[in-house]
């Protein structure tokens, strides 16, 4: 039976690991999250294989013969076995939790030379503000430089929207009244799609924006070419929305 479990777990893992589930990995966070997924896949395959093999064997070996009306053996439990299947899953989930915590810290770590971009969302459009004394503004298209950490400060004007670029593996809700933050370091130039993932009304499915990742020089040139400044109502939300997520340390220092 052990052999069957190992074989099945190995087979499932092999198949599952060979598939690229999450799509292209185009940020520094993406490979780390996908590695975490792979760890989860291997652990899950083992658990799943144990359950399936145990069930299949029970059905094979302990099926009642036709006409057999007798009862099974009166076994009420086995303390050692019960402790085992309490402790081992505990260890597995705590390991997964620890690894997740490590990945979470890594993908949100600041590099020290990040660039802040403001994200504005409203039913059903995205717009963006770029730093500099002009506070340049673009509608429906987001440009960012490659290989530089971007800190997105997100502001919603009406209901909750959510900012998701699948290839970056980063998602964050834009919440009216507060400023939320996400960090991402894109690693590949190209064009991507920004998808709204929080139900925001009848236009939710089509609330998309184009994302262009380009070299720093191309990006600088593009920003310089922007004519508009961030409109006043949006600037109000930048200034007035409260920052809900100060890190614990910053919060302590602020007090």
């Amino acid at each position: 039976m052990t052999a069957a479990v190992v074989a099945l777990a190995a087979a499932i893992s092999a198949v599952m690991l060979s598939i690229n589930w999450d799509g292209a990995e185009d940020s520094t966070a993406a490979p780390k999250i996908d590695d975490l997924l792979n760890i989860a896949i291997v652990l899950s395959s083992i658990i799943f294989a144990i359950v399936v093999v145990a069930l299949a064997y029970a059905l094979y070996a302990f099926r009642a013969k036709p006409g057999d009306e007798s009862d099974g053996e009166p076994i009420h439990g086995n303390t050692r076995l019960e402790i085992t299947w309490t402790l081992i899953p505990t260890i597995i989930v705590l390991f997964s939790g620890g690894w997740s915590w490590k990945v979470l810290n890594e993908i949100e770590e600041r590099t020290g030379h990040e660039m802040t971009v403001d994200v504005f969302s409203q039913q059903y459009a995205w717009s963006f503000g770029y730093p500099g004394k002009e506070y340049a503004y673009s509608e429906g298209v987001l440009h960012v430089p490659v290989n530089r950490q971007i800190v997105f400060k997100m502001h919603s004007q009406d209901v909750i929207h959510s900012f998701w670029v699948p290839q970056w593996r980063i998602k964050k809700d834009n919440v009216p009244g507060i400023t939320t933050t996400a960090v991402v370091t894109p690693t590949k130039t190209g064009t991507f799609q920004l998808i709204c993932t929080e139900l925001c009304g009848f236009g939710h499915a089509t609330m998309r924006a184009k994302v262009v990742v380009q070299s720093q020089s191309a990006f600088d040139k593009w920003v310089e070419g922007l004519k508009e400044k961030v409109p006043t109502p949006l600037m109000v939300s930048v200034k007035q929305d409260t920052e809900t997520n100060p890190e614990p340390l910053e919060r302590a220092e602020a007090e």
Partner: peptide, 16 residues
Amino acid sequence: GVMLGMVPFDIHVSDT
């Protein structure tokens, strides 16, 4: 469910 409990993975698949 356990996979969704792992924050970094959940960030990717939340609301999908």
